[in-house]
Design a protein around this nucleic acid. Structure first.
Length: 745
DNA sequence: TAACCTATCTTTTTT
DNA sequence: AGATAGGTTA
């Protein structure tokens, strides 16, 4: 390797690499080789500029991205590159916290709480508060608290600033305070705490000085998706040497709901007036047709740095648009394309289905099973969230950190040992009075009043077992400890006895065991704590395997940063994509549009878009309208595939997109003999249709008079109910009773 | 205590 | 439709 290391890059990319000193903003469009540029930049710094990898920090969005970047830099400049720290924000923070969390009053073996654990904590708080507020769910409280933490609002300042005036805000403030106290007691941090405490630890001068001295060259990938606290962390560390390079694309900012602040990237030049800005606009990924679609869609957004993707590639295939009758047909046509492609010599792994929400994966999974198409769903109900897996991890968590009451509560009766709610209440009362952990309290169960002899015996057994496991955890590797645990609590029997699909769940347990073995191969002498840390921070696509031949199914969010030869974006319907909640605010709508931009630009060769005129949503049949985003793509690059036999497609004007009740009737009548794969023959039966239409004689837009609510306008009709806008709000009325209350006017 | 039944809600998106 | 919470019963 030599000075020609940068030869493989284009001029702009080289410019970005050569500018190693001072602030640098790389505006990198989708597929413009930004990861490649960052990789070469690091290699160039190490190889050509004499910068020690020890001084380099690169922050990526996922562990997988970090791993890949590291591997590629090592390929370029050798093993020495391993001394550079390339990691996600959360891993970076944990690295510091492992050393310094004690300063903040945590034990070094603190536990990381995921969203599920957070909800359990909030639930217990609400219970102890005897809160009557039903408006806020645990989930809402958890996300409110996370948001506050990640925008740097402490419970104190929140309560001073807002909470006095509003019942809900008051509850949020109260829960926020208690929640923090409880996590601290449990020696636990949630995801937001990892970032917030990293920032707190950097307030110690000696820590900050060390960090600044070590990380003299900082790079941040996906900068458009950083939030306030991440921004503060990075700029705090970067302040001294000011060698900060951020890479991002404001058009791909899709994590606003998590507090990501698009302004971070838009304002970089304000933060660093001497910043050099490099734009990467040449796209190496997609065909011109795909880029044209992407450019047209994103043009409808207001906040955007001026940037247009272009490519040297020759024009590719048109974008196929499937207007399907229902969700099943959509699956059928997409899987038909996959099977056709497979016959033509493509691999399953060349195809990826993208959707807006996880719930949409189910139809595709069923379809794949029927057609023997190997597939893998990324994200969604994650492996580590399955009950049997979380139970085992809860055991390990308690063994690692006995202060962790949330996880102790989870396992106190798993496997079932007749310890019920009443018993738990008594122990809790005792432990709260004495200010001790659940674990310690169980150890003192003989001192707790009102427990039966049998229950005491069970508690003593449990405590003895845990004590033994804790002792073992100090000697045995995690895999051996895990094995021991399984046999001592007879977990396999428990799973087989308690779940209908026990066999399948046991496979998950085995998979967990295998993953431990695999990790132990990578991390030598992995401690229990290290293991738990590792499983807490895995992200959805971390185990994406490019070699294995399966169809990939994932949300658009999960597809960020990835690319695939053939992409299907399904469910392109109003209220799905853009989502229902985005209808009310321009900024939400624009985030949905950026999401659409991300989806389109994942495709290298061929893009399919699809929507269904009706589908089951929330278990009920509803009529759909196509996504507005489809209308933002020029018709000249769209291929409106000829529909199957017997279903003439209207092809005139806007009407083509409209779906009416009449048209839907046609669907049901002709359903049985459409031309697509037999397995996907029309699922909608005449019975469905009747149920759907009922005898309700109104249509959307009709004015009606209600006996009680007065004048209203029909907003939506579905198989079971009609939605009507009245003066004092929207009401839902069941179809079966509608004609008793309504009159058409 | 645990199993069973019913009523209610869910769909954003994730480290 | 599927998951889950809550209430009722064995």
């Amino acid at each position: 390797m030599n000075a020609e290391i940068l030869n493989k890059l284009n001029d702009k990319q080289q410019e970005a690499c050569r500018k190693t000193e001072g602030p640098l903003l790389i505006l990198a469009g989708a597929g413009s080789g930004k990861t490649r540029t960052l990789t070469y930049r690091i290699a160039h710094m190490i190889r050509n500029c004499g910068i020690s990898p020890y001084h380099i920090l690169a922050v990526t969005f996922t562990n997988k991205a970090a791993r890949e970047m590291k591997e590629r830099v090592v390929d370029l400049v050798g093993e020495d590159a391993n001394r550079a720290l390339i990691s996600t924000f959360h891993s970076f923070g944990l690295r510091l916290l492992r050393l310094y969390a004690v300063k903040l009053g945590y034990g070094a073996n603190f536990t990381i709480y995921d969203t599920d654990d957070q909800k359990r904590a909030v639930k217990s708080i609400l219970k102890s508060m005897h809160s009557v507020n039903k408006a806020l769910t645990e989930g809402m409280l958890v996300s409110a608290i996370s948001r506050l933490k990640e925008e740097g609002t402490s419970p104190e300042s929140y309560n001073e600033g807002y909470a006095r005036f509003d019942e809900n805000e008051q509850l949020i403030g109260d829960v926020y305070v208690r929640y923090n106290r409880i996590l601290k007691e449990n020696n636990a941090m949630d995801f937001s705490d990892i970032l917030l405490n990293t920032w707190k630890i950097l307030q110690y001068k000696e820590v900050l000085e060390k960090a600044r001295d070590k990380f003299r060259y900082i790079m941040v990938d996906e900068y458009q998706d950083t939030n306030k606290i991440q921004y503060d962390i990075i700029h705090l560390v970067a302040e001294k040497y000011r060698n900060i390079c951020v890479v991002g694309d404001e058009n791909q900012s899709i994590y606003g709901f998590r507090g990501a602040n698009i302004r971070n990237i838009l304002d970089f030049e304000r933060d660093y007036p001497d910043a050099v800005v490099v734009k990467l606009e040449e796209n190496y990924r997609s065909t011109p047709v795909i880029l044209e679609a992407a450019n047209h869609v994103i043009r409808n957004n207001t906040s955007s740095k001026d940037k247009t993707l272009w490519t040297r590639k020759k024009s590719g295939a048109q974008i196929s648009l499937f207007a399907c009758e229902d969700g099943r047909e959509e699956v059928g046509r997409i899987l038909d394309e996959v099977l056709k492609g497979k016959q033509e010599g493509k691999k399953y792994r060349d195809f990826t289905v993208l959707y807006r929400t996880n719930a949409q994966s189910r139809l595709f999974e069923e379809g794949c099973l029927r057609n023997n198409i190997p597939y893998k769903v990324f994200g969604g109900m994650q492996f580590y969230q399955r009950a049997e897996i979380k139970d085992l991890l809860a055991w390990l968590s308690v063994i690692n950190n006995t202060s962790d009451n949330i996880n102790f509560l989870r396992i106190i009766n798993v496997p079932k040992r007749k310890i019920g709610e009443k018993t738990i209440e008594k122990i809790t009362e005792y432990r709260e009075a004495k200010g001790i952990s659940l674990y310690t309290a169980v150890g003192e169960c003989d001192a707790i009043g009102g427990l039966s002899q049998g229950v005491r015996e069970k508690l003593r057994e449990l405590f003895a077992l845990l004590r033994q496991m804790i002792a073992l955890s100090e000697e045995l590797p995690v895999s051996k400890l895990f094995d021991e645990l399984l046999s001592r609590i007879r977990f396999r029997d428990y799973v087989l006895d308690n779940y209908d699909d026990g066999e399948g769940r046991l496979e998950n347990v085995d998979e967990l065991y295998n993953s431990i073995i695999e990790l132990e191969r990578v991390i030598e002498t992995m401690s229990l704590r290290e293991y738990l840390e590792n499983v807490s921070l895995v992200s959805a696509t971390d185990d994406l395997n490019e070699e294995k031949d399966y169809l990939k199914l994932m949300t658009i969010h999960n597809a960020k940063g990835l690319e695939f030869p053939v992409v299907f974006v399904c469910g392109m319907e109003e209220e799905i994509f853009p989502g229902k909640k985005a209808a009310f605010s321009l900024s939400d709508l624009e985030e949905e549009r950026r999401l659409c931009y991300v989806a389109i630009t994942r495709a290298e060769e061929k893009l399919y878009l699809s929507w269904a005129k009706m589908r089951y949503l929330y278990g009920e049949l509803s009529w759909r309208t196509r996504s507005r985003f489809l209308g933002e793509i020029p018709e000249s690059i769209l291929d409106l595939e000829e529909k199957t036999a017997g279903l003439p497609e209207e092809k005139t004007g806007e009407n083509r997109w409209q779906t009416g009740r009449t048209e839907s009737r046609n669907v049901a009548e002709t359903a049985g003999n459409s031309g697509y794969a037999p397995a996907f023959r029309k699922a909608i039966t005449a019975a469905d249709l009747n149920r759907a239409a009922g005898d309700f004689p109104y249509a959307v837009g009709d004015k009606v008079m209600h006996k009680k609510f007065g004048l209203g306008v029909v907003r939506d009709i579905s198989s079971r109910k009609v939605e009507i806008d009245f003066v004092d709000g929207t009401k839902e009325i069941a179809l079966v009773v509608a004609d008793k209350f309504l009159q058409k006017i």
